[in-house]
């Protein structure tokens, strides 16, 4: 028996995880896949396609291709930054745009979405 099984919430983590925790882990997973993408792409291919600029950014450290050299700590930090960015974006967008609500199915209105 694992130690985590002493906690019901931990043993059912996929069901009990908080939305922000889930967003953080999902962002870290995205960064890990991007780092695998950087590992998979041959940089000379970009040169052949005339996209050399994609290899370089301000310091050459933050392009997807450079992510192949990133370690777990850096991926965690990048995941945190990505999650924080998405959260801020959600709050800002939520302040300006009202989400659409679906109208009840039995409603007389012909359009199923109402503002």
């Amino acid at each position: 028996m694992r130690l985590i099984h002493r906690s019901h919430r931990a043993a059912n983590a996929v069901r009990t995880v908080s939305p922000s925790g889930e967003l953080f882990v999902a962002s870290v997973v995205i960064c890990m896949i991007l780092s695998a993408f950087g590992d998979a792409v041959d940089p000379s291919l970009f040169g052949e396609l005339g996209l050399e600029y994609a290899l370089f950014d301000l310091t050459g450290e933050f392009s997807v291709l450079a992510m192949r050299h990133w370690h777990l700590l850096q991926l965690f930090l990048a995941g945190s930054a990505l999650a924080a960015g998405i959260m801020v974006l959600r709050i800002v967008v939520g302040a300006f745009f009202r989400p659409l609500e679906s109208a009840p199915p039995q409603d007389a209105e012909k359009v199923p979405i109402k503002l």
């Binding site: 985590i4 906690s7 919430r9 931990a10 059912n12 983590a13 996929v14 009990t16 995880v17 908080s18 925790g21 889930e22 953080f24 882990v25």
Partner: peptide, 9 residues
């Protein structure tokens, strides 16, 4: 892990 189940994920 009980407070932060995301550690398991």
């Amino acid at each position: 892990v009980d407070r932060y189940p995301s550690v398991i994920l």
